[in-house]
């Protein structure tokens, strides 16, 4: 589904990603961990097409196409979803209105008819239940006045509405209490199918108790320096990154 080869990316003249290689197949869950400033969020933003970053080298293939050829919105319409670490507030724009446009844009892109008002409302009800999102929030402005937990639930709600092929969730667990974490994580798990894939970027092993990864990668200084299975996350939780980083520098 996604093949990343030797990806380098910079912001201004500062290189942040320095040769990432990653292969994600349908049905897989990958976790990306690593110390602060290692480039995890940049990697998510570059995949999503954020123009703040410049890809200087390497290739990214998504569903057989060169992902780097496409704009942010076209990547989204092709089925790439980025869960934001800091979801943005949009005053005056209701969730329902925003989602209706987003869902119908995606349908138009696929050559499908727009949803009727009734179909859309049914879809919203069904999907908001997945993350136990209060139905009232859909009539409020996007993320405005939402608590930290509600913002993250709202990201997963949008993911449920858009049914992406690949979801890149950037620290979806940060700032969540235990209950919200459980709800958000089980929401992601419910959305997982053999046809889609998820990349979760996280600092903490506890998210991975719910979202069990097939692979865990450690990103350090813009490169994946180590990959393993789910037991790697447990080891990192216990021992930290030092043993890997020291190894790297030898």
């Amino acid at each position: 589904m996604l093949t990343v080869k030797n990806l380098h990316a910079s912001v201004g003249d500062k290189e942040i990603l320095r040769g990432i290689n990653l292969e994600v197949k349908a049905g897989e869950v990958h976790a990306i961990m690593g110390p602060n400033g290692s480039g995890k969020s940049t990697f998510a933003s570059v995949l999503a097409g954020n123009e703040k970053f410049t890809v200087t080298e390497g290739e990214v293939t998504f569903m057989g196409e060169n992902l780097l050829d496409f704009s942010v919105e076209d990547r989204a319409r092709k089925g790439l979803f980025q869960g934001f670490q800091y979801p943005v507030e949009i005053p005056g724009v209701t969730m329902a209105n925003f989602m209706k446009i987003a869902v119908n844009e995606q349908r138009k892109f696929r050559g499908e008819e727009p949803l009727s008002a009734g179909e859309f409302l049914r879809l919203m009800r069904e999907k908001s239940a997945i993350v136990e999102l209060d139905a009232k929030l859909t009539s409020r402005a996007v993320n405005e006045g939402f608590s930290g937990g509600e913002k993250k639930k709202n990201e997963i709600f949008q993911m449920a509405m858009l049914e992406p092929k690949l979801a890149v969730l950037d620290e979806t667990d940060s700032g969540l209490d235990i209950d919200a974490l459980r709800i958000v994580a089980t929401g992601v798990t419910k959305l997982h199918t053999p046809e889609n894939a998820t990349i979760v970027i996280t600092h903490y092993q506890r998210l991975l108790d719910y979202i069990v990864p097939d692979y865990v990668h450690v990103l350090y200084k813009g490169r994946i320096i180590y990959s393993g299975d789910k037991t790697l996350a447990l080891k990192l939780e216990k021992e930290g990154y030092d043993w890997l980083i020291n190894n790297q520098e030898e």
Binding site: E73, A76, R77, F81, I90, V93, F98, Q106
Partner: peptide, 25 residues
């Protein structure tokens, strides 16, 4: 906010327009 909306599949024009509409709503 424009980037956020584009990540959900809205075009640049739609995202700008929606934001401005929200501003006067």
């Amino acid at each position: 906010a424009v980037l956020y909306m584009r990540q959900r599949g809205l075009s640049l024009e739609q995202a700008k327009r929606l934001q401005v509409e929200g501003f006067v709503s």
